[in-house]
């Protein structure tokens, strides 16, 4: 199986005033194509810092990072932007949709920055991505007319539209109620079943049952890295939840 991500001895220091915060203190692991990885850890353990580096939004202070064989550390700012555009889908805790903009237009956004995609293809792919996340009937709804769960689905569709090598989600269910959280987990399991590589960051240990691999961070270090042979079915869990109105 192909290696999508390869981290070696990643450090990330932040300088705050005249103190240095060591957010990551030598993190190494490889992630293969088709894995569904949950990264866990308490607040402040360095999960977001690591995911931002994986998403090429931030660069490590030291260490090497290969994404699909490309050495991110040696890339220029613009090259990293193109890499984000073609190989990464990012899902944020607070959705980060454009306001006063329809679902389709939000999903089209990454393709706007890809000149090789025509406007017709862009629209088709955005519609397809929205159908995949179950929002085929909400194409022209404005982002502010949707529920949290719907907004997060739009964000996931946006992360999928460029057909990325890896989907990164930072506390993607953090702002959602339990039921909606499980709906999103069902969606991630479906995407995984379709063969996508997913890295899912959460501080909620319960969610580790639904992925194939768990990495546990503490204080900027990997404490535990284990495979999960008994993946629970999020859909079954969702069905067992009491229905609220």
């Amino acid at each position: 199986m192909a290696t999508v991500i390869s981290l070696k001895d990643i450090h990330r220091d932040f300088i705050v005033g005249n103190e240095t915060v060591h957010a990551l203190k030598g993190v190494s692991f490889d992630i293969m194509k088709g894995e569904f990885v949950t990264i866990m850890g308490t607040s402040g353990s360095g999960k977001s810092t690591m995911l931002n580096i994986l998403g090429c939004l931030d660069t490590p202070t030291s260490g090497s990072y290969l994404l699909d064989g490309n050495s991110v550390g040696e890339m220029s700012r613009d090259e990293r932007a193109v890499l984000r555009n073609r190989k990464i889908g990012f899902v944020f805790q607070n959705y980060n949709l454009l306001t006063k903009t329809t679902a389709v237009e939000n999903v089209e956004l990454p393709l706007m920055y890809n000149p090789s995609v025509s406007s017709v293809e862009r629209r088709d792919r955005a519609v397809k991505a929205l159908q995949d996340v179950g929002l085929g009937n909400r194409l022209d709804h404005m982002s502010n007319q949707m529920s949290g769960g719907q907004m997060q689905r739009v964000a996931i569709a946006r992360a999928l539209v460029n057909n990325p090598s890896v989907v990164l989600a930072d506390e993607a269910t953090g702002n959602l109620d339990t039921r909606t959280s499980f709906e999103i987990m069902v969606l991630f399991q479906k995407l995984h079943a379709e063969g996508r590589t997913i890295i899912f960051v959460t501080h909620n240990p319960e969610l580790s049952r639904y992925s194939t691999r768990n990495i546990f961070l503490r204080d900027g270090r990997v404490m535990e890295d284990s495979f999960n042979s008994d993946v629970a079915d999020a859909a079954a869990m969702l069905a067992s939840l009491p229905i609220e109105d």
């Binding site: 998403g55 939004l57 990012f90 920055y113």
Partner: peptide
């Protein structure tokens, strides 16, 4: 600023 950040995160380059 947030919008600019989002655009950059989905692949907008500085010059875009």
């Amino acid at each position: 600023t947030k919008e600019i950040g989002l655009r950059m995160s989905v692949g907008a380059r500085s010059r875009d």
